[in-house]
Design a protein around this nucleic acid. Structure first.
Length: 481
RNA sequence: CGGGGUGUAGCGCAGCUGGUAGCGCGCUUCGUUCGGGACGAAGAGGCCGUGAGUUCGAAUCUCGCCACCCCGACCA
């Protein structure tokens, strides 16, 4: 039997590691901070890629690929950018046995190489906008790593767009953060708060950073996607100008936006339980497992199992049958629960005799008996939708219960130990830094979603929870990954 | 970079009052099983992280080194 997973209540961090390893999502590599994404983990990423890529294409974007290596001189062109990233960059000094004339940075992100290219591509307003995305790996030499959440090398997508006007750029930034929100909610079943980062939390080189913030089961926040308004910073650094209709030369406006394999970590920490991984059906490569009980008339059982599988496939459900005789049904039940497969069908001689099958839901652990007839596939298909919705509802109810408005500093201190605190902030970096120093909690975002603002009355006047100075806005404080 | 922990069979661990290695799971073969991690029998598998030292003798004691993990400071 596999090593028992540590209970969440006992040690949340160990539980997370246990789930990642026992569900065979990832393994440690021999290089510090790097991870091997195993098939079970990579299939989640592939599902995410498929959905996101479709959403990017639907919003007019195209894919391309830029090099892994970036000349040091490019990196140094934008002051804030290099200052933010230099400490965590891997740098190549040798190639082909020779010391390089110019060092090459392994991309921590691609703004510089992309803008050096855009500068060549863009001459006129007719060349704009450029709406490019790339799927790539990046390297950031982190001091402290965690499987999926923060690894030295990780996979992501980075969109880089160029626009004629600031309004166009801002529209793009908002459009993409909403794509991320939609993806998180509809595919990951993950409720997120859309907001803007404070000065100290924003991307190195950006004017504004927008983000989606999610709550994990331990009440901590996880930044799950970002969309940056880069202004003309990179255009100026790389002399990227275009000629307007009127014949004037103007700097191009830029955005960039990305999500990474960190989302897999978010998925795990939002939905999974002490039995292992719980996957939302839309991101499960295998949505249904049929476990035939192979005793008595095996042929008949397998025939029925195959027929049901075929019906489900015809409905677009991803299903597989584990008919191996190496393991007992009980072993299979436990194993596929550990791997997070949303629905299990148990089918044995007794069921066939009674014209039924047993259905087990991964999200609620509920077992039910349903008739085995020409409606079964439809029922299972519907059940997958129910599970998808239930995971979202459950995560949202959990988050909402752990997110509370606070009006005093003591309340804030207590609340950030539990979850998200919504509090008035005077808008100064000093206050933000003090609170971080004293509580370890940071301002996760300044929410921008109208419905959210309305619901929590974020724009009511008040006094800063720390300084007591007048405040015009409430923001989200939380400890974060 | 600080604090802690761990390196012994594929995995998890025991052995640490020195005498050349064992348990559970997994693996192989055969048989019986199969409705919540089955059972029996027979097997395969280890320069005990690494370097030095102490000793007749080191997985065990001493010192160094290395690696990884966990916890904190920087970060998607």
């Amino acid at each position: 039997m596999a090593e028992k997973i540590t209970a969440r209540s006992q040690d949340y961090n160990q539980w997370y590691i246990d789930v990642v390893r026992d569900a065979k999502l990832a393994d440690y590599s021999d290089v510090r901070g790097c991870m091997i994404i195993r098939p079970n983990g990579y299939s989640i990423w592939e599902k995410m890629q498929q959905a996101l890529d479709m959403m990017f294409k639907d919003t007019g974007h195209v894919n391309a690929y830029f090099p892994l290596f970036i000349p040091e001189s490019y990196m140094k062109k934008e002051a804030d950018h290099i200052e933010g990233f230099a400490p965590e960059c891997a740098v190549v000094t040798h190639g082909g046995g020779e010391e390089l004339a110019e060092k090459l940075y392994v991309r921590p992100t691609s703004e510089t190489i992309i803008w050096s290219t855009y500068a060549k591509w863009i001459q006129s307003y007719r060349d704009l906008p450029i709406l490019i995305n790339q799927w790539a790996n990046v390297v950031r030499w982190e001091l402290r790593t965690r499987l999926f959440l923060r690894t030295t090398e990780f996979l992501w997508q980075e969109g880089h767009t160029a626009h004629a006007t600031e309004a166009d750029a801002i529209e793009e930034v908002m459009k993409m953060i909403n794509v991320y929100r939609k993806f998180a909610e509809e595919y990951m079943a993950l409720p997120v708060i859309v907001g803007r980062k404070t000065e100290s939390e924003k991307f190195a080189g950006a004017l504004e950073t927008y983000c989606i913030e999610a709550m994990m089961q331990d009440g901590k926040a996880l930044q799950s996607g970002t969309s940056h308004h880069l202004g003309q910073n990179f255009a100026k650094a790389f002399e990227c100008r275009y000629q307007t209709k009127e014949g004037k030369l103007e700097y191009v406006w830029a955005t960039s936006w990305g999500v990474s394999t960190r989302l897999i970590g978010a998925l795990i920490m939002a939905h999974s339980d002490d039995k292992g991984l719980v996957l939302p059906p839309k991101l499960a490569a295998r949505q249904v497992v049929i476990v035939p009980i192979l005793k008595g008339d095996k042929t008949l059982v397998l025939e029925k199992a195959n027929r049901l599988a075929a019906m489900l496939r015809a409905k677009g459900v991803s299903v597989f049958i584990d008919d191996s005789e190496q393991n007992t049904p009980g072993w299979k039940f436990a194993e596929y629960e550990l791997q997070g497969i949303p629905v299990r069908v148990e089918l044995g001689p007794k069921d066939i005799q009674a014209g039924q099958c047993i259905i087990a839901r991964r999200d609620t652990s509920e077992k039910m008996t349903i008739a085995l007839d020409d409606q079964t596939d439809e029922q299972i298909h519907d059940l997958l939708s129910t599970i998808q919705q239930n995971l979202f509802d459950r995560a949202k109810a959990y988050r909402d219960a752990k997110m509370k408005p606070v009006s005093t500093y003591d309340e804030l201190k207590a609340q950030v130990e539990e979850g998200f605190a919504i509090a008035h902030w005077d808008g100064t970096a000093e206050t933000e830094a003090k609170i971080k120093e004293e509580t370890k909690a940071t301002i996760r975002c300044i929410p921008t979603d109208a419905a959210f603002i309305e619901q929590y009355r974020l724009h009511d006047e008040g006094k800063c929870v720390y300084s007591g100075k007048p405040s015009r806005q409430k923001v989200i404080f939380a400890k974060a990954y």
